[in-house]
Simulated scan of single mutants.
Amino acid sequence: MPAVSSAARAVAVTSLVSAAWLLIPATAYADKTPPPGGGIGSSGNSTSDGTISATAGGVFYDRSKNGTGTSVGPVTAVGNWTPPACWYVPTYTAEQFKAHVEPIWSADSTGSQWDNEQRDRYVNGKPYTNFNLDKADKGYWWDSYTDPSYRPGWDACTKPYFWVDKGAPPPADIPEAITPEVLAKLAYAAIRVPTTHVTLKPDGSTKVNLPTWAWLDKADFHPVSVTASVPALNISATTTATPLSLKLEPGTGDATLFPASGECPINADGSIGTPYEAGSADKTPPCGVTYLRATNGTPYNLKATLTWKIHWTGTGTPGSDLPDGTFGQDQQVLVQEIQAVNR
């Protein structure tokens, strides 16, 4: 689903205090040349290597190095942090902007008062004149987009269309205007990592007081990344997620974790934990759990959560770290009593 453009929003209800924008679905103009930043709606572009990369909300995403397959999902940021809920991007040339807004005004669907205010703003010099057609090759009209998940803060981008000259930074008082850092945060939301299904030994069914070994193969858990860019501005950012540690939660208080914190760090070769080898049944696993009570038919839900370190780099900047992300999965474990044989 594409990001929602403020350009295609129904407009303006006035109260005694303020005016508010009413969101309606964006309209895709398939018969028009796409604006520089991708414009309203979404499109797919096939690159030279055959990778399909999507454009949404004026941002171009390259997911060719992302996690793939049916068993992948987004990470959840550690702490009180979420990716941007709305942002501004260059969306129209002067000609495209004129072609977009004039039919809206002519339809009289938004009310003559609002239409006249818009004509004053963009045609009559208050502050723009004739859609900036005299600067047609010198800049772009910017518009706001809202992430379709409507994260907290989705309604923060209420500034109307504004013009930015090529090579000039967007207004400093608009923190949501697209920059390499904002692109990095949007790429964070597009990261997909593999499901955290750990290998267990014994697998599926174990015994009371018998150590259960747990590990992740390095081949299944490797860095993934997404690059987000705005070609009109010639800027991009790449956000990379790298496996950091595994946390085990046994699903019961009647268990002993290894290590005691339940946090299994990543090994030098990229794996986590150590595969079980024959003859190690009585040894302490570097990553695992010992259950102290049988399940009596109802399995325990062992939760394995992988923490991913998130870092970004971007145009003109070495970047920095973003909040770690987590992604986990429950696995059912049956625990049986050890049966003693009396002679």
Results as ranks from 00 to 15, higher is better:
residue 79 G to E: 00
residue 242 T to I: 09
residue 315 T to L: 02
residue 96 Q to N: 00
residue 99 A to M: 04
residue 340 A to P: 00
residue 143 D to C: 04
residue 16 L to G: 15
residue 71 S to N: 13
residue 30 A to V: 14
residue 147 D to C: 02
residue 174 I to Q: 05
residue 89 V to Q: 10
residue 300 Y to M: 01
residue 71 S to C: 01
residue 299 P to Y: 15
residue 160 P to A: 07
residue 284 T to A: 10
residue 332 Q to C: 04
residue 93 T to M: 04
residue 182 V to K: 13
residue 101 V to N: 09
residue 69 G to Q: 09
residue 207 K to S: 09
residue 107 A to I: 03
residue 203 D to W: 07
residue 285 P to M: 07
residue 167 G to R: 10
residue 57 G to I: 05
residue 261 S to W: 05
residue 151 R to Q: 03
residue 238 T to P: 02
residue 273 G to T: 06
residue 109 S to A: 14
residue 275 P to S: 11
residue 279 G to H: 13
residue 140 Y to H: 08
residue 5 S to V: 02
residue 9 R to S: 11
residue 63 R to F: 00
residue 28 A to F: 11
residue 162 F to H: 01
residue 154 W to S: 14
residue 97 F to D: 05
residue 20 A to P: 02
residue 159 K to S: 13
residue 208 V to H: 07
residue 203 D to A: 10
residue 217 D to W: 00
residue 225 S to N: 12
residue 132 N to G: 01
residue 55 T to C: 05
residue 67 G to K: 12
residue 58 G to S: 09
residue 141 W to M: 02
residue 247 K to Y: 09
residue 314 G to H: 10
residue 317 T to F: 04
residue 334 L to W: 14
residue 147 D to W: 04
residue 43 S to C: 06
residue 137 D to N: 15
residue 83 P to L: 09
residue 207 K to R: 11
residue 110 T to H: 14
residue 34 P to K: 06
residue 30 A to M: 05
residue 252 T to W: 02
residue 13 V to Q: 09
residue 100 H to I: 02
residue 196 T to Y: 05
residue 77 A to S: 11
residue 44 G to Q: 13
residue 331 Q to V: 12
residue 92 Y to Q: 12
residue 83 P to N: 11
residue 112 S to M: 08
residue 42 S to R: 07
residue 181 E to N: 14
residue 307 T to C: 01
residue 310 I to Y: 01
residue 24 I to Y: 00
residue 338 I to D: 10
residue 263 E to N: 13
residue 244 L to F: 07
residue 145 Y to A: 04
residue 199 T to F: 02
residue 48 S to Y: 15
residue 99 A to F: 03
residue 77 A to T: 07
residue 169 P to A: 14
residue 310 I to G: 01
residue 326 T to R: 07
residue 277 E to R: 15
residue 304 A to V: 02
residue 161 Y to R: 03
residue 165 D to L: 12
residue 229 S to N: 04
residue 187 A to N: 10
residue 123 V to A: 06
residue 39 G to W: 06
residue 47 T to F: 03
residue 278 A to P: 01
residue 236 S to N: 14
residue 12 A to L: 14
residue 14 T to I: 13
residue 117 E to C: 07
residue 114 W to R: 15
residue 95 E to C: 00
residue 38 G to R: 06
residue 22 L to G: 03
residue 205 S to E: 13
residue 257 L to I: 06
residue 249 E to Q: 14
residue 214 A to G: 05
residue 318 P to Y: 10
residue 104 I to Y: 10
residue 175 P to K: 13
residue 246 L to W: 11
residue 68 T to N: 12
residue 279 G to N: 10
residue 125 G to N: 11
residue 195 T to N: 09
residue 12 A to Q: 10
residue 204 G to W: 13
residue 225 S to V: 04
residue 182 V to L: 09
residue 34 P to D: 03
residue 78 V to N: 02
residue 152 P to V: 01
residue 168 A to E: 12
residue 299 P to C: 08
residue 110 T to W: 14
residue 152 P to I: 04
residue 341 V to A: 10
residue 192 R to P: 01
residue 4 V to R: 12
residue 317 T to Q: 08
residue 274 T to H: 13
residue 238 T to F: 08
residue 164 V to E: 00
residue 281 A to Y: 00
residue 183 L to I: 08
residue 24 I to V: 14
residue 17 V to Q: 15
residue 254 D to L: 05
residue 70 T to N: 02
residue 342 N to Q: 05
residue 208 V to K: 08
residue 49 D to N: 15
residue 68 T to S: 14
residue 300 Y to E: 02
residue 178 I to H: 08
residue 341 V to S: 11
residue 166 K to P: 01
